[in-house]
Structure formats: C-alpha cells, structure tokens
C-alpha cells in the first residue's frame, strides 16, 4: 500500500499577479514552503491579461498530493491561480486512433472531430509503417473547453465508430 502521494511529476501552475513590487516573491513563497521544487518561472512582463494582471507560469516538480496542497496554500495566500493541473480553462485531450485511418479519409475524420466534438486539433502524429492496407495509428492532441472532455470523448467515439476506428482514450475526469 502506498501513502507517498504518488510519483514525483512536473506540474504547471498559471498565476495572474498584480503589477506591484514583491508580488512574485509572495506567490513563490507558498510553493517552497509546501515542499515544491521550483523548476522554472516564466514571468510574462509586458504581457497583460484582459484584467490588467501579469501572467506567470510556474513549473513545479512534486508528488500529486503535495501539488494539491501547494495550490490550496497559494489560494489561501490570496494568489490568483488561473490554471492548476486538471482545472485548466483550456483542457488538453490526447487520444490515439487505431484502424484503417488512411482508407477512411483521415482528413475528413479530423474535420468531423473539430466541428462535432467542439475541439481544436493542436498536434497530429501518424504512424502507418506497413502502408495503407494495414492498421495504422494516429495520436491526436486536442484542446477542449474546460469541463467538456467527457462530451468531446463521447462525440469522438461516435465519429470513430462510424468508420470502425478504435479510440484509445485517457482516463476521464478527475482520475488522472
């Protein structure tokens, strides 16, 4: 039985800071206090959010459970956390499609996914080593709106079923 909170992973937190002296330091303190290992800080000075704040992206390595503590303590310290792990506004969905991708018109498949599943394709990787007669695989990276991954996956399954393609999907919702 494991109670270590899982393997150490890299997590990204997006913060919005008020443009005042000391704000960045104030935001970073709770991270180190909670035992997070700071990997990088991307301070987009000069690039203001619509609310007039400065976006900052922080990469932290720590165990998933510790990450939850960090996000909580940031919020308790009054830091504006706009994205943390699965709470991102722009969610990412990675799936692998398997089947006769080329014969079933891959570009049409992708078009359908973008229009019906309300997702935008950001990356495609196709592997079809045996030519067009055999089964091939494609990895799709999609951006979806926050909280809509489940719906997007359901649509994707429908589209794939029509073309007899198999969808290898990630675990859903809070399960990652």
């Amino acid at each position: 039985m494991s109670d270590t909170g899982g393997e150490v992973q890299t997590h990204t937190v997006r913060l919005e800071l008020v443009d005042e002296p000391g704000e960045l330091l104030r935001a970073l303190e709770p991270i180190s206090e909670a035992g997070g290992n700071l990997l990088s800080i991307y301070h987009e000075r000069g690039n203001l959010t619509p609310r007039g704040h400065i976006p900052v992206e922080v990469d932290i390595s720590c165990a998933p459970t510790r990450f939850e503590t960090i996000v909580e303590s940031l919020r308790e310290a009054g830091v504006n956390v706009v994205q943390a792990g699965s709470e991102r506004y722009d969610e990412e969905l990675v799936v692998i499609l398997v089947g006769h991708l080329v014969d079933t018109d891959l570009s049409d498949t992708l078009k359908q996914i973008e229009s019906c599943a309300d997702a935008s394709l950001t990356d495609l990787s196709l592997s079809a080593p045996r030519g067009r007669d055999e089964t091939s695989s494609a990895r799709l990276r999609l951006k979806t709106r926050s909280g809509t991954n489940g719906d997007a996956l359901a649509k994707l399954q429908e589209i794939a079923a029509d073309k007899e393609l198999q969808v290898i999907q990630p675990l859903t919702e809070a399960s990652q």
Binding site: I96, V98, S136, I168
Partner: peptide, 26 residues
C-alpha cells in the same frame, strides 16, 4: 474492450508523448 487490435505503432505514439497503454478497468 480488449487489447487484441492494438498495434505496436499505438504504443510507440503513446511513448513519444510520455504515455503508455494499459488495460484499465473502472
């Protein structure tokens, strides 16, 4: 769903992205 139709290429694509494929039940 089973694993009989999963080609090696699907596992390669997953690996390139820091992922892998497992038969998971929920």
């Amino acid at each position: 769903d089973g694993i009989t139709d999963i080609p090696g290429t699907a596992l390669d694509l997953a690996a390139e992205d820091g992922r892998t494929i497992r038969l998971i039940g929920e």
